[in-house]
Design a protein around this nucleic acid. Structure first.
Lengths: 202, 202
DNA sequence: TTAACTACAGACCAACTAGTCTGTCAATTC
DNA sequence: GAATTGACAGACTAGTTGGTCTGTAGTTAA
């Protein structure tokens, strides 16, 4: 009665998912409070447990319906457009750095945050998270395979190893920035990362 | 009466700290339950709140008195012995890989775990964690500076940048292993990491 | 128009959890 | 050896939190 004279269940669900995503980003899944999500969205217990049968199912939905599309938009799609892995990836990283604001520095990468918190705690979370890493990993590896075919990347390197290495490094750097609350780590480590990537040129 | 006919307050404190450390490693600080620590140690609320004034203070103590010495023993001291940063560091990593068992794969790096969970949540935790990263960072940078002085490492590279890069990469790789519950990521990314380190030779 | 169903509202509950408080026995001091 | 202090034991509490349940208004189909 107090809210929603007009009903829009899809919007309700999305609203809850979005707020939950940001709460998880800040406080982790364990720190996420259903009541806090309701407070921020203005909905009630009735609405919440109509759309999600438990907090755990909300967590799953956040991963599948928010995190996964986010990674697709942010990484997978752009990677498909890459012609020159070396220059384009360096450019992507520099663009990311320009985009990063203080808030993002404080929160880090949502996928990596969830990885660290949930993968040892709950198998149902872990498998969902691994699936997303795999997508990213394969997309990066394919990018370097294309680079090899077009003669930009050396033929004697392993695209899958490189993909794994780059993902690990990028996430590691973001983690350092998060803890230091400064992008200094990004600049320091970023130089070495660029040096490495350049060694891959044919 | 039921426990400790003979008293040993130091051992009590250490016992609690050690169990808390392992609980945090598995479940995070937010997932840590005081009752669970008491259950595992066999002590009671009375003992706990005699040694620690709050759960938060326990967290601080775990960082200062368990995590910090652990990093010192595992990284800082060995780094002081390094003569050839390239070969010795590669050897240290391979040794680590051999040591890693399934349990450690599941838990990851305690310092990085706490970083991801607590640095956005609580400033008192963040400053303590940053202090430890700094120690590691400086020790690694010094190792490469010595390498430059002895002519093993190229003079045109920046030891601090390398230190930051290596820390980020190592932590990133451990994070991937943790999520995949497999050391495959270690082997894949490790090859690239070795390739990179070798480019630093004078 | 009405019956059935969907999408909520909101009071309520049971379990959990950090922290308190009083009591007691051991260790140290004088 | 008596008194003071330190190191606990363990019952208890207040606040939190995920989840339930009943009620109700909007929506849709017949």
């Amino acid at each position: 009665m107090s809210k929603a004279a007009v009903r829009n269940p899809d919007a309700t669900r999305q609203n809850i998912l979005q707020v939950a995503f940001e709460e998880i980003l800040l406080k982790g899944y364990q720190g996420l409070r259903v009541d806090e999500v309701l407070k921020q969205t203005g909905f009630t217990k009735g609405a919440f447990y109509h759309h999600f049968k438990s907090k755990k199912e909300l967590g799953h939905a956040v991963i599948d319906e928010v995190l996964k599309p986010w990674i697709h938009e942010r990484w997978i799609e752009p990677l498909k457009q890459v012609k020159d892995p070396i220059n384009d990836l360096i450019k992507m990283m520099n663009d990311s750095r320009a985009e990063i604001n203080i808030k993002e520095l404080h929160t880090g990468c949502p996928l990596n945050n969830l990885t660290h918190e949930m993968s040892p705690l709950d198998e149902s979370f872990r498998v969902r998270i691994v699936a997303i890493w795999e997508i990213w990993y394969e997309a990066l590896a394919e990018t370097f395979e294309r680079g090899q075919q077009t003669g930009i990347i050396r033929k004697d390197v392993n695209p899958h190893n490189i993909a794994r290495f780059l993902i690990a490094t990028i996430e590691g750097i973001i983690g350092q920035c998060k803890c230091y609350m400064s992008d200094q780590a990004f600049d320091e480590a970023g130089k070495c990362l660029q040096d490495y990537v350049k060694t891959l040129r044919a």
